[in-house]
Design a protein around this nucleic acid. Structure first.
Lengths: 335, 335
DNA sequence: CTGTTAGCGCTTTCAG
DNA sequence: CTGAAAGCGCTAACAG
């Protein structure tokens, strides 16, 4: 049975455990973190001592000496953007499964804050850093490279990674959607997009592929259903005979659909709508929403694995991973 | 004399800064973290030395000695539940503004995992802990109290807090919605709810206030739009003449509305629907969604402030904060 | 397999 | 206002 521990005024340290087990501190340490090199009998005694003292390791102290904090910094624009949630979740879980803790930071959509946040993160000495989007500032790139720890830029692709990358081409997404619209014979097109870098790359790809001017509504990121309604009102003012609209997120697209419907327009018969991200609700709306599927969870898993592998000293065969994307055709474009 | 370090192999430490500035390490430390007690001239020289060396403090080392890690652990069931996003965001931002970093952990909806996660978190020696929901396990309660750091349980209320609390009564939410439905003269009621503790408390409050059996669909948390459609199909099978349905989240409610509409039922004329949470999209759907507004962002702010105040040694006047809630009447219940 | 020694980088004493 | 000494709790490096 368990006796109530004699009121540990101080949290138990490894020394307390060692004394209790009748071994030295380093042996206790090894018994817990590297049991292979310690005799079974000793492990057993140390384990008992841990239970008795209620010892919980101090990772700050361990990290100071071993230079491994077992943390990974994650930078996202804003935590509450649904887009990145599956990624954050799989990052958290994949890292957790290997003993690492994700430390999340919000960089905002403002690039100047990014550098400040980076410093805050670095001061916790993470073993790796995962960044949403590309690192543009020269100063930040150099600083990251100097750190000598694994860095993953995710949710985008470029030909000069700071270190590693997991993402896809936003330019190609934009032109793929334009191609899809044009193949349907739609000429009067519209685009409703957030103003962040990645959404604007899709915008650029879209416009380049269309080749003629399209109705455009640009809203400050992150976009929302509410802004979708306003954006659609705006687009219809620019071209009342709009045939198809691409939107930079699914929630945004939902607002566009609702605004169209509230004006008596039928989707897709009068106007077709395509979103981006394949949110969990997209398939279950009425009409179900055509969108671009990107495997956000896989991005997180791969990013985490790259970091962990590099930390373990394993060689990385493919430091730049293109996960691609796929247009999922549903009712909102007449599927 | 040596030339400027072109390639710092090692990250600069406070000693490097001190040497560069021609002062002792402790003075450099004070110049950076407690400038009030250092002469302006010295501060200036230390600042320059920091810039020159590219010094970034090591908070692990500082925390080890000072016993203040400047981190706060946050436990949420699942990061990707939209419900808690405003809270996580305001927690992050409020803490950040005061120099603290939120360390997020997913406890899942499984109570057994909670204790394990707690240990992981404690091993990083946070200065405070914020937990979503109540801590039920006796072992966990005792362990938390032993730690001697500020603890906030949030998003719920009880009469025996581990330490501090910021939330509202789910039981009251449930009975308020039931009262609202009954006042409208609706008798044939339904409830679609997730199976987590808080949602079930609302369920209990709802049922107790109604006083007679209601059609019920319980789904595993977290609920989704997709599950809302299924739940509504289920409820209509139980009672095809349902007059009003309460749903445990707004996304869930949206699925209920869509399923009703897809069967030719008009909302609210044939069946009224009420959600929970007042998500950003609720006001902009068609019909706009009646729901229960809870100030999730304020919960986060208050929780963060309680932790920070306690860390600063300030007395807490009200360790238990009831933020209440409010039914927002919209079109989906005939407003 | 186990122990000794020596710090990791910083901040808390306690003195000037 | 500034400094010297003394660790925080843990683990790398080297003995045995």
């Amino acid at each position: 049975m368990k006796n109530p521990p004699p009121m540990p005024n101080k949290a138990a340290t490894l020394h307390d455990v060692a004394r209790e087990a009748g071994v030295s501190a380093i042996t206790a340490s090894r018994a817990l973190s590297n049991p292979g090199v310690v005799s079974d009998a000793t492990i057993e005694r140390v384990r008992n001592a841990v239970a008795k003292t209620g010892y919980i390791p101090n990772l700050l102290a361990g990290g100071l000496k071993s230079k491994r904090s077992m943390t990974v910094a994650g930078l996202v624009p804003v935590i509450s953007v649904p887009q990145f949630l599956p990624t954050i979740r799989s990052l958290t879980e994949t890292l957790d499964a290997q003993g690492y803790q994700l430390i999340l930071g919000q960089s905002g959509y403002d690039h100047s804050r990014e550098e400040k946040l980076l410093n805050t993160m670095i001061s916790r000495r993470p073993d790796g850093i995962v960044i949403t989007g590309l690192v543009h500032s020269r100063a930040a790139r150099q600083q990251l490279q100097r750190l000598g720890i694994p860095i993953v830029e995710m949710w985008d692709l470029s030909d000069r990674p700071v270190d590693m990358m997991v993402g896809f081409s936003h330019l190609k997404v934009g032109s793929a959607i334009a191609g899809y619209f044009l193949a349907k014979g739609w000429q009067r097109l519209g685009i409703a997009t957030g103003d962040d870098h990645r959404a604007m790359m899709r915008h650029d790809g879209f416009c380049a592929a269309v080749g003629h001017p399209v109705a455009t509504a640009i809203v400050p990121a992150p976009s929302s259903l509410e802004m979708g309604r306003k954006a659609m009102a705006d687009l219809l003012a620019q071209d009342p005979k709009l045939q198809a609209v691409y939107c930079s997120s699914d929630g945004f697209a939902q607002g566009v659909v609702i605004e169209a419907q509230s004006r008596g327009l039928r989707v897709p018969q009068d106007v077709a709508v395509c979103g981006f991200g394949d949110a969990d609700f997209a398939a279950h709306l009425r009409p179900s929403l055509t969108t671009v599927q990107v495997d956000g969870a896989e991005i997180g898993r791969r990013a985490a694995q790259l970091i962990v592998d590099r930390c373990a000293g394993r060689a990385i065969e493919h430091p730049v991973v293109d996960l691609g994307f796929r247009i999922v055709e549903r009712e909102s474009t007449g599927a």
